[in-house]
Nucleic acid binder design. Sequence first.
DNA 1: GTACGGAACAAAAACGTTTTTGTGTAGCTG
DNA 2: CAGCTACACAAAAACGTTTTTGTTCCGTAC
Lengths: 350, 350
Amino acid sequence: MPRELQHGATIWDVARKAGVSITTVSHSLNGKGNISEATRERVRAVAAEMGYVADAMARGLRSSKTDAIGLVFRGLDSLGNYGPNGVDVFMKLAGAAAAETLNRNLGLMLVPDLSRGPLPPFSMSLDGYIVFAPHLDDPVVALLENRGIPYVTWDRDPGRPDFRNWVAHDDAASTRTVLDHLAAAGAGSIAYVGGTDRNAWNFDCEAAYVAWCLEAGMEPRIYHVPERDGVEGGQEVGARILADGLPGAVFCLTGRHASGAAQAMQERGIRIPGDVLVCTGSDSEHSRQHRPAISALDVDIPAAAAALVQRLCDVMEGKSEPDPVLLAARFLHRKSTSPGKARNQQKRGS
Amino acid sequence: MPRELQHGATIWDVARKAGVSITTVSHSLNGKGNISEATRERVRAVAAEMGYVADAMARGLRSSKTDAIGLVFRGLDSLGNYGPNGVDVFMKLAGAAAAETLNRNLGLMLVPDLSRGPLPPFSMSLDGYIVFAPHLDDPVVALLENRGIPYVTWDRDPGRPDFRNWVAHDDAASTRTVLDHLAAAGAGSIAYVGGTDRNAWNFDCEAAYVAWCLEAGMEPRIYHVPERDGVEGGQEVGARILADGLPGAVFCLTGRHASGAAQAMQERGIRIPGDVLVCTGSDSEHSRQHRPAISALDVDIPAAAAALVQRLCDVMEGKSEPDPVLLAARFLHRKSTSPGKARNQQKRGS
DNA sequence: GTACGGAACAAAAACGTTTTTGTGTAGCTG
DNA sequence: CAGCTACACAAAAACGTTTTTGTTCCGTAC
């Protein structure tokens, strides 16, 4: 049991005990001013012995640096609105980001959606922010922009083409990979199921799908389901797709939708992958759990978190802004897209 | 685009614009002093119009309240040492805790393991802490105790029987539930596989197992595998159990161990649940994914998080400390423990 | 012998709040 | 009309740092 009042050890206490002024203490510990090495060392020893740690508030007040960054936490309700890949991805990202920040000796604060309700106490004092999946006219980025707080986003901001501090997967390339794979596995027509959130993920994947169809001479079949509707929304769209005519493959952006759609079709006697291929743009427990397991695009979360934190640190240090970071998604080939006989509903190239 | 320098709007600016002193501003906004309702309202309006938010640093410095709590984040390396249920549970807890704190308008900061390396800047200024699964002589709780920072723990601290601010599942009751279930499903002998971390979870489950065996007249068969060894450790212990003689059931505390043990036995021709029942004390993706799916105890994470945050707030407000919170775990009955013919290796009661 | 300069440290200002203590005016009492 | 209270607000101290500006001492150059 060391000191009794270690809790309140202030810079004055250290100064008194070392027989110097508080200036000397501050300078000694921070390696700044002009202090003889002997004094510096002595002060360091005293401070260490007393377990002195500079008060973060006072330091932050003076130098307006908190050494902590924020991660905008979108609650479950708003995740329905914003978070395309669902809570799983978000929480994994939070964990990876925390692991990444600790390496740099930064704190990571989870703050609720900044756009509604009273601002959480610390939110405006953080050094920077990571924003998850900004949507069109996102009030959160508007607020940060307005306050001049540095931030990076996961996925690009669809409304700000000139904003460059983002990290994302190459959605266009990923989409083409998936579609090529489905076509190679025998799908002559491919239905696309996107979400309704107005974020880059939805926009870019759909655009890539349309472009790919054009090239392949295939008629686009596009469906939209609100992200928040999850598996049930997937079931509903599965039925709708069936009513419109069985395609060779169904590509659902979210894992929940894919799982629901697959389930709805299976319940109506359709076999996967025998009669239709199913694939999702974001792996989740639902896609893994489904029988047969659903092929998916997989996100390298640690890499994404590392890139985000790195970029944010760069921005905070005022480094010049290079190009956005594009990561490659892995395609996880599972049973739901095993190749088989041709499944052309509308003949390819017809 | 509102104001140009909203970023730096200070209490002085508000005071000047409202034609009052900063005292009046502070009092008006915080509903303290003795201010006429007219003035109070006018100041409020001006502040709102300017988008004024009190600087958290200054406020914190003055009143030594940060309105933020910390969650000790144990990195992947130390999770091997500390986190009994693996990273999944921890991240879910973090998410649930974040959702819970935002309701109270508190910030939640993830801080790295406090016991090693330099302390992250903010760690000693937070109002309180949630510590995940403290182990015997945990340096993190020692540090918090030493600094006089309020904290609650998830799972009790095995080394401090008189510390009461914890929330946990009733491990003894859960263990009995599982063992009763296994016995009822026909297991005449049950092998127990625990971890090596010195935390309450391991201690209490093992003690309950031993007690239950004594009552049931069954010879205890206890194995230990380091948590960090994961699935591979489970495979290894599965082989070891088999070499010692096939029991009627295997109860592994962690999902990874259970999955590995099941796998090792299945590879050697043992059928589950035909020849042996397998069950785990903490549900995870591994237990869900395994074929057959492995029965498990399931944690109600949101309830746990809510209880932890609630308790921490109580402690911070200096409320009297009631009894620790004991939550009930749900038992998820899956295929791996389907009842069948008696599987008595050693006859029950013999 | 005075002026200059650098080394080593100290004093004081500043950061933006909250809180304690003042201050002036009005109304009321005796 | 002196004195007291209540009211509405202002001034100033305090929180614990960092940083800017001083101060002292001493050696050296002119």
